[in-house]
Amino acid sequence: MRISRRGIMAGGAAVVAAAVPVSRALAAGRPPIVNSIALEKGRVWIAALIEGKGPHFFLIDTGSALSFITDDFAKSIGLEKTKGQPRYGIGGGVSDYGWYIAKEVRLASGTRFADMVFAGARSIDGEGVGGFGSGMFTSYDSDFDFVKGEWRVYPDGRGDFAGLKKLPSHFTKERIAPRIEIDVSIDGFATELVLDTGASMDALLSGRAAARSGLWDDSKPYAPTQAKGFGREGIPSRYVRGTTLSVGEFTFERPLVMVNAPGTVSRQNGLLGLGVLQRLNLTTQASSGTVWAARNGVTKGWNSYPLSGLWLDQRKDGGATIADVGTGSPAAAAGLKKGDVVTGAFPELLRAIAGGPGKQVTLTVASGGGAPRAVQYTLAPWL
């Protein structure tokens, strides 16, 4: 069975008129439907029963036009996989993971979704089994209240936007479900970014935007990493620290920005992530296709980056080659350089260089074919 785009829209979007309990749908002057959400380690989670089983945790991922579910979990509850369509990932890569249809998905509030369509995914971060995409949040007026831990949906419209500021934003026109784009300025570089509660950093810039912004600069401090997402994995990327990030009337100091390597391809300029978003209470207005916001008192987002400043590539002999060393990092201060060979089992090396501030790291390293030597350094933040 092949799923049509109309079927994806009907299943993936929050069609509240069909989804809310009948008794509530028939009531006059309906109050908002309140669903509990949890903010943990740079992710927003919501619990749901699927096919009457659970509850299970799903990511709230407004950066994805599609809701998705892991293949292993879908198989465990007996969902049948159907042929899908190509999807473009974070680096422009294309993948086809197929679709699943769940006859019933029910949230703790009693909100029910019938015949909901999920894209298949290999895995997701954390202990969740899937994610709800942007269509859940652009079909009706809704609030993200990160302080109270609530996602509130207004079946009849919110009506009152007092105390909120309208952000320079719009809903995109896409074949499956609209996403939200917002005008953002990072260190004076103006661009449009997709509002993405599934991205933990403050912002991400695609390769083209990173090149134009000037933030990809070897002379400035950075932490090497790789961007991962649907479609393609392993895009060379960096964490850098900006000076300011502005969204409408709201300004955030020292944003942590992931920048993809110039030359990597993407269909979007980048993402505005949860590191910034969780410091605002957000309201979507479906009729105008815009977002409103207010400060919520949260002063810091999830600001995490690898503290070694190393990126290692696995060697056939089980050791590793240093693929990148971040400028200003503890590893750079210890004299490690790109191309150095590190001795040891690759999984153990990854564990050795990971950790929090104060951890001592000892590596056995050879440079340019020379004799191995011991290198020691201490993990510490430097961005």
Rank of each mutant, 00 (worst) to 15 (best):
V265F: 15
F118Y: 11
F146H: 11
F118G: 08
G319P: 07
G188N: 01
R175Q: 07
V34K: 15
T62F: 11
P262N: 13
G93S: 08
A18Q: 12
G356F: 02
L193W: 06
P357D: 00
I235V: 15
R179E: 01
K337F: 01
G91F: 06
A190V: 14
V240Q: 11
I176P: 04
W151C: 01
F250W: 13
V34F: 09
A323R: 09
G289W: 03
Q268Y: 12
Q314S: 09
A210S: 15
L49M: 08
D141S: 04
A65M: 10
A371I: 07
G133Y: 05
D202K: 06
L282K: 05
F58D: 07
G356Y: 02
T138G: 02
S237K: 10
K81T: 07
Q278S: 13
G93Y: 07
G126C: 07
G289I: 05
R295C: 00
G159K: 12
A190D: 15
R295N: 11
V361P: 05
M116Q: 12
T364M: 00
P372T: 04
D156Q: 12
R208P: 02
V325H: 03
M201W: 01
L310N: 06
K41T: 14
G289D: 02
V117F: 04
P221L: 00
L167H: 02
M1K: 09
H56A: 01
T362A: 15
T364C: 05
D160Q: 11
A354I: 03
R179Q: 11
E348W: 02
K103Q: 14
V375C: 10
A293F: 05
K173Q: 13
A119N: 13
S288Y: 00
I46Y: 00
E51C: 04
G135A: 13
S134Q: 06
T191Q: 04
V184C: 03
L167R: 08
I50W: 03
T251L: 03
Q278V: 12
L193Y: 05
S142C: 15
A38W: 08
Y97H: 14
V298E: 07
I186N: 01
Y222A: 09
F146G: 11
A333W: 06
Y239M: 08
T362L: 14
G242V: 09
P330R: 13
G131C: 06
K220S: 14
G54F: 04
S329G: 06
A331D: 10
G135D: 04
G319H: 01
P221W: 03
R254Q: 11
T364N: 03
H170C: 06
P178L: 10
